[in-house]
Design a protein around this nucleic acid. Structure first.
Lengths: 153, 153
DNA sequence: CGTCGATAGATGCAAATGCATGTATATCGG
DNA sequence: CCGATATACATGCATTTGCATCTATCGACG
């Protein structure tokens, strides 16, 4: 908790990451426990969510892979499972014979919206009381900056 | 990126969490790819790290579970694996017949220190260039506050 | 064009994970 | 002290994951 003034840059970076990671674990633990994830794993919801945010609807499977913390093969099978459950559909990429495009089905949209609502409510109940609005905005800014810098190179 | 001024509290909280989560995924993806985690999964290192931070050396298995994003049964088997590899040792809790205490062996200490060094270097290379020292301190403060608030209730 | 290295995705297989449950101990109310 | 309920950890089993590898296509270059 104490903010030491004479910390080495390396140590500061490590402690910052450590703290970010622990916060993520703590929040995620609560979210997973909630009723929103009864029949859908967190990674599965994450895929539905990412697809729901995609403007064109279709998304390449390898681009999906950048958003989710899963190996390529695991994502391949996860999408396969979602397809079997009728939540997404796949089609060969028109401009690249190796690629596959994925998008939500109507059922997938419905489920994402339904779970999303509960999920957002749970998040608000966890994060809302923990930080002021100004602090949340600052946290949003800093994590976005970090993500952009890390993804860039 | 744009900081909308007229956001609902619920939406702000959701976007903050979303951003925090994505940043964590982006950083973790890079860290996992590094050579530091060749023979040790991230969760396994996490356990070694947590044990290395424990003042008394011994830590109850259920307390370990609070730090790691794993089910109780998975942690039980993870510790079992680490024990088989000679990195930790277990003993029955003296004050609670149900409990188990865990601590690092000498080999576990060595491995944690070795991997920890590489790990810290990787983190510094990722986070250091992304945020100023002041920003890192602020991010550290906010995530610590968030973690404490979430863990509290 | 034909070859070669790189990339996208799928698949076999062993390992890791979670859920449900089992066993043992602790704690609480009479 | 006794029974009921809760907690800590382990285990059986089905599912999920990752690594290594395979197939097919892409892109570059002679």
């Amino acid at each position: 908790m104490s903010t030491k003034t004479s910390e080495s840059p390396v140590r500061l970076a490590a402690e910052t990451w450590e703290s970010l990671f622990r916060a993520q674990v703590a929040v995620m633990r609560r979210l997973q426990a909630g009723p929103a994830f009864k029949g859908l794993a967190i990674n599965e919801y994450d895929v539905l969510f990412t697809l729901s945010r995609c403007p064109s609807g279709w998304l390449r499977q390898n681009e999906l892979n950048d958003h989710v913390l899963l190996s390529q093969s695991s994502l391949s099978r996860l999408v396969e499972r979602l397809e079997k459950r009728g939540l997404v559909e796949r089609m060969p990429a028109p401009d690249d014979g190796r690629g596959v495009l994925v998008r939500l089905t109507e059922a997938g949209w419905e489920l994402q919206k339904q779970i999303g609502r509960e999920h957002v409510r749970d998040i608000a109940n966890l994060v809302g009381p923990a930080l002021t609005a100004a602090e949340q905005r600052e946290l949003l800014r800093l994590t976005e900056k970090l993500r952009a810098a890390v993804a860039a190179r």
